[in-house]
Amino acid sequence: MLVQNLAILVLAGFVGFAVISKVPNTLHTPLMSGTNAIHGIVLLGGLIVAGLGAEGVLDKILLVIAIAFGTINVIGGFLVTDRMLSMFKAPGRAGGSKTNQKKEQR
């Protein structure tokens, strides 16, 4: 099982390297935010450890915090990325006027 998982780990690493080769400078921050949201997958770790049995009170408290943290990471991450990207939308597209306002605010 460990060897299989290590194989998956190495392959996933190369996928990660391959996906990010050329990124325009303006997209660096949204991309950072997007990958940040994806590592919110740690939420699954919290769900599994909590769901398959946490005994003590302290363990339960710690897990609730961990799940809350993971949820914040996922939901907040994707929402913030979307808001950042709304600044890059072409003016002609839907919501263009809104986008321009945001640009001016900035």
Partner: peptide, 17 residues
Amino acid sequence: TALIVAGMIVGASGTIL
């Protein structure tokens, strides 16, 4: 596996980024 794949993709792409 989900944690391994997603975590590692972020680890690798984050390093490049």
